[in-house]
Nucleic acid binder design. Sequence first.
DNA 1: ACTATTTCCTGGATGC
DNA 2: TGCATCCAGGAAATAG
Length: 306
Amino acid sequence: MPELPEVETTARGLQKRVAGDTIEFVWIGNKTNFLKSPAEEVVRTLTGATIECVRRVGKHLVIDLHTNETPAKSKRSHARKTGSAKTRTQKSVSANSTAVSVAAENSQAQWIIHLGMTGRVLVCDPADPPAKHTHLVAELASGRQLRFVDPRRFGRVQVAAGSAFQAPGSEPIGADRGEFATLFHRSKAPIKSALLNQKLLSGVGNIYADESLFRAGLRPRRRANSLTRAELQRLYNALQEVLAEAILAGGSSISDYVDSSGEAGYFQLQHRVYGREGEPCLACKTPTKRIVIAGRSSHYCPKCQK
DNA sequence: ACTATTTCCTGGATGC
DNA sequence: TGCATCCAGGAAATAG
């Protein structure tokens, strides 16, 4: 299940393999509820676009494109979208005061993919048999294909004009310590819920939330605003550590391991609490507990975590 | 203005 | 063996 480290690993792999390539043709399947932008807008934006860069923004995969789309068309279609998209449009437009930079902005577009629970982006040979639940195929000038596969369709695909896509919250990696503390100081929600709230930090999912809380010695039900300065510091350190280790594990595998369907192999970080209900805590042997917070499984050691 | 719960989805695991 | 039921979870929608 892709969280920040997996998305980072995927982004690096894709950057390495498809940057500089051009999308020549786009196919979209029958089930289109994974699209956040209208299908025709996705097709229009992607077709003929050159992939400049693939990167991670929060839990989103962002593919920066150079397009041939005309400014007028791009603006009108973009304006149909919902609140947050409008805000971004306004931002990106207002940031460009001269006509020249507006024109430059409009030859840029972004293909934004959220992998949800089961989403994957594969680099395939056209001869590779399509995986079940393949919802979008982009044929590349190099002769290869990018395929979006997602059985559960929790993943989301959208396109946007410009290059200003932002995640709803702060970037967890290298977040400022003070800012990190401020984010959680205001929230009365359980710290576990606050960690999962993408409007605070973008990119932390269920597994790494549990792992961070375990390393920080904090119970998931603790109210975020009850954490002391020292506890927030421990949580900050734990989160940085967990994410860095997970990316390292993924990063070491991506360079030399890509399976037959072009999928990067995730060598996941060894979980210390996640999914270990009833098993002895690795530090003190107390059986690991599992509770449900905000509808999510939360694992913790009742002795080590206060 | 909050937080908490439900809903969307399918495949794999479990139970009878 | 086969069928029904449950469970996993990111994030939007809905409820409290």
